[in-house]
Write a protein that binds this DNA or RNA. Sequence first.
DNA 1: CAAACTGTTCAGAAATATCTGAACGCCCTT
DNA 2: AAGGGCGTTCAGATATTTCTGAACAGTTTG
Lengths: 156, 156
Amino acid sequence: MDTEQQLAQLRDEFIARMGVVAANDGMPRMSGQVFAMLVFEGEEVAFGDLAKNLSVSRATISTSIRLLEERGLIRRINKAGDRQDYFQLADDAYGAMTRFALGGTRRTKSEIDATISKLPDEAEDVRGRLEAFSGFYEAISAALEDAATRVSKPKT
Amino acid sequence: MDTEQQLAQLRDEFIARMGVVAANDGMPRMSGQVFAMLVFEGEEVAFGDLAKNLSVSRATISTSIRLLEERGLIRRINKAGDRQDYFQLADDAYGAMTRFALGGTRRTKSEIDATISKLPDEAEDVRGRLEAFSGFYEAISAALEDAATRVSKPKT
DNA sequence: CAAACTGTTCAGAAATATCTGAACGCCCTT
DNA sequence: AAGGGCGTTCAGATATTTCTGAACAGTTTG
């Protein structure tokens, strides 16, 4: 069982790291850890096991799960004859992740554009600068859109 | 002076919104507001004016400035005969912003790869899943890299 | 129907991130 | 050399995010 222990340790390290990554990305650490756990264990993981393995309350798991579900990153599975809920990565989890980021950049661009449209005609210089700013978010959006198709497609 | 008042109000709204955007991006709100102010006012803005206009202490401005400078988003200007520091958007601010994001995705990919390289040979399935995860960050990195060149180039 | 589970919700605790005020070193002016 | 304004730093206050424990509604089991 040496290999199993080693794997378990690697898994815990991986989960811890992805928690930090999530936190840096402006996401609750726990959501990142839940996601990481589901990546590592490919099979469905039970709600209770998530709480136990990640050493947090079931309330926290419930909240983390909700966030991940809303973003389309995981899916909930009901097994017949088992009252517990199980979870697994969504089919196109990485595509969903990309599209979520895309939504953010698009929203930001819209907000900038909203300001631009209200500028008085005289403010030519301000308009120019805000348009450059908007253009930046447009470029990022285009790049993400491109990545989204590429990420989602691997059903070759 | 009606137009000026209108502009001032639009500016404040813009700044407030960009503060929220920054916060959602996992950045201090104030850094986003300082950045937005520099985008709006194209000219150099004095350190003291930043504090006054954004209604925060000079300590906060100092910290925000440091973050933005570290990321290459703004530059500090010393005017002869004036003891105050002035600030302006960096020449390639949006390029720097893109490269900063790129640094993050690359770092994350490295962390995933580090785990992969430690996996025992038997763990074929886990390796496959982590490689898919790593591949996702690779795709995003490539997209950002692409965007970076496009964002930085407009020196036509 | 009572007891033992499930997952969710929410008020409040705990942990973090953010901002402030005071102290400081520096440079300039007087 | 003294005084005033500059930006930085850091301990501590404040605000915000994140987690927990208890209460709850719904199911299943005995």
